[in-house]
Simulated assay, not measured.
Amino acid sequence: MATIGILRAGTPRALRATVCLLAAGLSASTGFALDAGPVALPQSAPHYRVGDNWTFLRSDALSGKGRTFTQTVTAVHTDGSASLLIGPGGGRLELTSEANVVPSGAGQQACGIALHFPLQAGTHYEADCRAVSESGMTVTRRAQCDVEGVETVQTKAGSFPAIKIRMSGTWSPQSGYGGGPMEETLWYAPSVKRVVREEFQGRLAGKGVPATAAVELVRYAVKP
């Protein structure tokens, strides 16, 4: 899922340029509730169908502005991955068999590889990746991921039992100045086959006001 940074005045340009890359692949008030008892959710990877589609909202808390974009499955491949058509604009991405969004035809992984199935509470794993911005800057991210369990998350598309994954690590440009700590939280809803909410926060060299990013599901239509 692609995201947009919510940046305060004075945020270094390097951090502005990389926030969109770092958040793997929301303006309404959103609530989270820990489920009282154990909830059995599918732990296996999703199965996509041609026509499955998801609309997300990128929001900026400072300006109060937001922009929506839709991802539609146009083809499903033998390895379980799928091709996505992005609207508006007609761009294309790939959706891996583990519900991670990566560039089409890219020889490297985008910074959206935080899901690793089976998603079982207590699981710990690493998610390292590299991405290139439109300006040509290459950014590397190294993160530790922890599957914390199930929460009910409220989004514009409704309320979903979701598997919560918390990430912490660092980001750094391949060359030049920059880099620092990052934190990210994802909520994956099996019934939707996608992450329905994600929140990212990063600091340049661990100093200053953090840049934050958020994305929320607005509507969706998926086949069993």
Rank of each mutant, 00 (worst) to 15 (best):
F200L: 13
P210S: 03
S159E: 10
P161Q: 09
S172L: 06
F160S: 10
K156E: 14
Y220W: 12
V218Q: 06
Y177M: 03
E198F: 13
A205T: 10
S175A: 12
K223I: 03
G158D: 06
A221M: 09
T170W: 05
Y188W: 11
M182D: 07
V209Q: 15
Y177V: 04
R219H: 12
F160E: 04
L217Q: 01
G178R: 00
L217E: 01
E216S: 15
S168V: 10
W171V: 00
T170D: 11
P190H: 09
L217W: 02
V215E: 13
T185A: 14
T155E: 01
P173C: 02
T170R: 08
V222S: 08
Q201G: 15
V196A: 04
T170A: 12
W187D: 03
T152R: 13
A214F: 12
W187C: 11
E216G: 15
V215T: 12
Y188M: 07
P181C: 02
P181A: 05
M167T: 13
S159R: 11
L204E: 11
F160T: 06
T170V: 13
A214S: 15
T155G: 04
A214I: 09
P173I: 01
A214Y: 11
Q154S: 15
E199C: 12
A221R: 13
R219D: 15
I163T: 12
R197E: 07
K164W: 05
G180K: 01
S159F: 11
I163S: 05
E198I: 15
V195M: 08
G158W: 02
A189F: 08
S159Q: 14
G176C: 02
R194C: 11
T155W: 02
G179I: 00
A205R: 11
F200H: 10
G202K: 00
Y177F: 13
G158L: 04
R219K: 15
E216K: 07
F200V: 08
G158A: 05
T152A: 14
V196M: 05
G179N: 00
K164C: 08
Q154P: 12
S175P: 01
S168F: 07
A211M: 06
V150M: 06
G202S: 05
R203P: 08
G206S: 02
V150I: 10
T185M: 04
M182Q: 12
A213N: 04
V209G: 07
G202N: 05
L204W: 10
V195S: 05
S172P: 06
A157D: 05
E198R: 14
A189I: 04
G206P: 10
K207R: 09
R194W: 15
Q154H: 15
P181V: 00
G208V: 05
F160L: 05
K156M: 13
A211K: 05
A157S: 07
T152V: 11
S191R: 10
A157G: 14
G176L: 00
A162D: 09
Y188V: 09
W171I: 01
A162W: 04
G202F: 00
G208I: 02
K193H: 11
V215M: 13
G180V: 00
G202L: 09
E151R: 14
T170I: 08
R197L: 10
V215Q: 11
L204K: 03
K207M: 13
G180M: 01
K193E: 02
